[in-house]
Design a protein around this nucleic acid. Structure first.
Lengths: 162, 162
DNA sequence: ATGTATGCAAACCATTTGCAATGAC
DNA sequence: GTCATTGCAAATGGTTTGCATACAT
């Protein structure tokens, strides 16, 4: 419930993972994990990097990439590639799985809590696989962009960078 | 049914789109569309470029990127970004929507015809948006990689490039 | 003591961009 | 004749890599 408890659980899970695979428990790794779990919603490497340096913790981008890799592997972070060129990440523990609606006009990403998408009936189809997580990306036009498209009668090309 | 008919329909749809938005009907654009619709399954820019030059049609990569943009906009092609750094594409006309299972170990992508995922009940939740298409990505471990992981007791880091 | 992890800077490479030449309209 | 489109080559920028140094074990 409270944030402190979550941080603790997450840290424990990470420790277990690092121990199991004989990876070292460096202060950088824990600091990165902790920072990620203070970020609400999606983030990219730039945001994470700035968030860390701003709060006084110096890390190299290389280490961020290395550590994120570990966090992805142990399932504490999820990676998204919505359509622009930057990878987006998101904490995964205590964060319900949800769908993403991506507007092809403006690139905005909205989240929807997904209720009953993955029914037991659906699950059965993947029984030979160990499903870690899934992402549902729904592409289309948000109401704002639809209106614009109707007015100016010119096409909106797909999401551009930045 | 037969391929010739499909090609024709697709070409017509593209023509309509180009006309509507006052884009020019260049031979390059039609050649690219035609080539894409001979490719089975996913492709990336490299594959498309080689496929075209091999069959004697010279296009620049810049034009490929430009044209794909149009094809995405009019819905004749769908773009995927599975986790590696290259974008994958897929023809979208006469190609049923399907789910993708991506193995976090080896990066292999398998497709599953999706049956009843998008029920009318689900649809209602997005009524304010014009849904063009959606992609369900299911990440996990394929049976082969699971076995490997158990045997060698070392972790498989997420999908690497190439 | 050993070898993994970090930080820096350089390398990589898919994609984008600028611009002159081409050709659809 | 206009101006969108093409092709080329250079630029961009997120991510990766190589290597010397630091530090977890």
């Amino acid at each position: 419930m409270d944030n402190i408890k979550l941080q603790e659980q997450v840290k424990n899970e990470f420790t277990d993972y690092l121990t199991l695979y004989k990876h070292r428990k460096t202060p950088e790794r824990y600091a990165i994990l902790e920072h990620i779990y203070t970020i609400k919603g999606h983030f990219d490497m730039d945001l994470l990097f700035n968030s860390m340096t701003d709060s006084g913790f110096r890390v190299s981008r290389a280490t961020l990439y290395n550590t994120i890799e570990l966090l992805l592997d142990c399932g504490l972070v999820v990676k998204h590639q919505f359509g622009a060129n930057v990878s987006k990440y998101e904490k995964a523990y205590g964060n319900e799985n949800h769908d993403h609606f991506i507007c092809l006009g403006c690139g905005e990403v909205k989240e929807y809590k997904n209720s009953n998408l993955f029914t037991p009936a659906q699950q059965k189809r993947f029984q030979r696989f160990k499903v870690s997580y899934y992402s549902l990306y729904i592409y289309g036009m948000c109401s704002k962009c639809q209106r614009q498209k109707n007015n100016i009668k010119s096409n909106n090309l797909p999401i551009k960078k930045k």
